[in-house]
Design a protein around this nucleic acid. Sequence first.
DNA 1: TTGATTATGAGACTCATTCTCATAATTCCA
DNA 2: TGGAATTATGAGAATGAGTCTCATAATCAA
Lengths: 164, 164
Amino acid sequence: MRLNISIDKQNPWGGFEEFLKEKGMKITRPREVVVKEALAVRGHFTADDLWARVHKKDRTASKATVYRTLQLLTQSRLIEPRDFEQGKLYYEQMVGHHHHDHLICLECGKITEFENPAIEELQEKVARKYNFTIASHSHKMYGTCVRCRQGKTKEKEREFKIKF
Amino acid sequence: MRLNISIDKQNPWGGFEEFLKEKGMKITRPREVVVKEALAVRGHFTADDLWARVHKKDRTASKATVYRTLQLLTQSRLIEPRDFEQGKLYYEQMVGHHHHDHLICLECGKITEFENPAIEELQEKVARKYNFTIASHSHKMYGTCVRCRQGKTKEKEREFKIKF
DNA sequence: TTGATTATGAGACTCATTCTCATAATTCCA
DNA sequence: TGGAATTATGAGAATGAGTCTCATAATCAA
Ligand SMILES: [Mn+2]
Ligand SMILES: [Mn+2]
Ligand SMILES: [Zn+2]
Ligand SMILES: [Zn+2]
């Protein structure tokens, strides 16, 4: 399913073309628009967010193609899915980014990214203990950000519907 | 929204009755069946799993009531939601259980629970660094369990549809 | 018992995502 | 370069978890 290619950070669309070729798939206009738009987003986005952007560039692009390309982008490792909220998936582009985890403010929707090598190591240790092979992981903390706790938040960035 | 009660582990339904009273809600038959069935499940379950059980006990119980009671059970802390898979929520009862996190085998669906105080502490440290107040967290590792890696798995327990 | 209040079941509805299928674009190669 | 073969596309139907509505029913305090 997943190919073991690594795409050139300087030319991700070119790399994605290679990826398509290796899978015997075709290089098409709609795919190019979706890929380039996805990589142009900074921050986290949903399929619908992406479709809105794509739609501006190409009035005829369909949502189905956006969803289909999102799957390919995930396989090619150019983006990663994020399960911030139940019911819909977010994504973020990984070109030139390292792995990180997230603090999610339930009041204003602000997401803070963190990296913690010590946690990652302990994680591996846990996996080793259970003889488990990690393919991916998700580590999220939900709560309240500084600004919200101090009542300084001007406007919500987003609303995450979390059950508890 | 959430009340600050702690329910007696020896008599959770009794405690839940208290919880309902404090919220000005009524003690009803359907609620009793749903609560008792939910607490009778060991392991992780979905709303639909629970409904199937409830349905056996009371042919007229509706799915809506199962969903509604699941929310109340979450508020009363008798159960906790689990975001193992995108698109549907799982739950697990917390009566007499401590907090733990999960290893999820993508091949057979087996879930291994782990507790790691060192990770929990580092987590708090991260939150402190960003002045973030944690309300809850979710830490999952997806991958392959021992049995599956060694080809010893007899049958899938479940199938989790994860996008990578 | 009764009346005010809250809960219920049934099914309509929502919303993200996937699927289907007729048509269109790409690619391969003679 | 011209098709034929193959894969992709757009449109909208289908799916599935979860929520909502509303007419009716049950609970409970007085
Ligand atoms: Mn991120
Ligand atoms: Mn568990
Ligand atoms: Zn905030
Ligand atoms: Zn397994």
